[in-house]
Design a protein around this nucleic acid. Sequence first.
DNA 1: ACGACCCTTCGGCCGCGGGCGAACGGTGGC
DNA 2: GCCACCGTTCGCCCGCGGCCGAAGGGTCGT
Lengths: 252, 252
Amino acid sequence: MDTHHAADPAAPGLAALAGLLADETRAAVCLALLDRRAWTGAELARACGVAPSTMSEHLARLVDGGLLTRERQGRHAYVRLAGPDAARLVEDLAARVAAPARPAPGGLHAHSAGRALARGRTCYDHLAGRLGVAVTDAMTVRGMLRQDTGFALTDDGVAWLTDLGADLARSASSRRPLARSCLDWTERRPHLAGTAGAELCRLVLDRGWAARIGTGRAVKVTPLGARELASRLGIPAAELTAAEETRRSPSA
Amino acid sequence: MDTHHAADPAAPGLAALAGLLADETRAAVCLALLDRRAWTGAELARACGVAPSTMSEHLARLVDGGLLTRERQGRHAYVRLAGPDAARLVEDLAARVAAPARPAPGGLHAHSAGRALARGRTCYDHLAGRLGVAVTDAMTVRGMLRQDTGFALTDDGVAWLTDLGADLARSASSRRPLARSCLDWTERRPHLAGTAGAELCRLVLDRGWAARIGTGRAVKVTPLGARELASRLGIPAAELTAAEETRRSPSA
DNA sequence: ACGACCCTTCGGCCGCGGGCGAACGGTGGC
DNA sequence: GCCACCGTTCGCCCGCGGCCGAAGGGTCGT
């Protein structure tokens, strides 16, 4: 008989899950896929600097582990994060590790792409960066979001989003929470995620209040969006455009 | 020059963090340490079925990675989870993997220790198991906790906990949230965590409303505790003792 | 039909790291 | 002072797995 000691039965599963992200290339893949787009193996191989065959094996492991899904279209095989749950796992772990204490001028975000990402981006399916944090802060100040005793929309917040045209019943069948906090890795501050965050992001992009920059995660508030959001949130439009690199305090 | 591609700079850190839990022995260590006690290396080595020298190396890696802290006392070196953040990381990952679809009779929790753990236990510093879920559900029904639009205590909930003697200002200086949701790995349902959950757990144990069974994580509601909690939560005491194995629906 | 392209499989290489036992130092009990 | 015990370090073995290039199969464009 094998000496099977009283170790927690969940240990093998936990180790297997962690093992999926324990490789630098696979971690880079999951981070890249946070943009919610479907990538081909060749694209990912190029982005990570490994051979297509190597990437193929990594993707097979990630798909097999349930983190990614693959959909074949003709001669292409697109891969994307399996869903909000998988995205959240990657976000959570990444947020815990990315501690660029201070994005000093000349430092990490000196290049324009980095600055654009810091200004505003999507975090899988919701808004992040200074844009996401600014909207979240404004909603908190206006009593739509309660962050002092947890993280939940108020009735006012639900009404505001519904007025805006958000379909908050969407995918309510799943156990995904309506509102949850997601820690921003540039701002180190929480912003709105969950189905409400996803709906808000969808609305903002659909109406042209913000637009994607290029093909990545970066988004930019449009003049129309700055006007509309600022008036509906009761804040100066400058807080949303945030052209300058100043940091604001949360204004408790 | 090396071919440094545009892979996310956070990838190495993410891989390193995941790598800490990507080994079965280290995963078992972290799960064992969820009981919030300080273990010696020898104890952990015995529990995991590896040599003391092997365990020593694992612990060194975990301490170095910031997940564990070590405190020396005489010829012993005690190790414990570094704090609520580290505990949360382990909890989150473990909850995502432990999917014992149905604790059928004769199945996973057939033995008495497993049944005791399913009834009630601590999850690092807050209550979990059917006990934790029952209290959380009761608080939700009584309007002390709002789960429909996120997860936050209501003003009533804050007052109820304060009346009970909870010191909710404790460690408010840190960024730890007052209330957050923690997914239970036996019940697959959320229960109260965060500083409020920790305070509630501390109160319940201090007043003898529940007592630890043996030296592990399992806790048992005392008759006094069943009376007190039931009357303060406005539910039948049977919901807390939960001697039988029935499952209740959340009663939205 | 042919070539181009994408993905996958396979064999081979190599380094990382988890495992052990032996040896060493530090602490406390006798 | 001696021994017992705990923890750590070291050398060693070995297997897993990340990496590549070569080869094969599938799909589309021409």
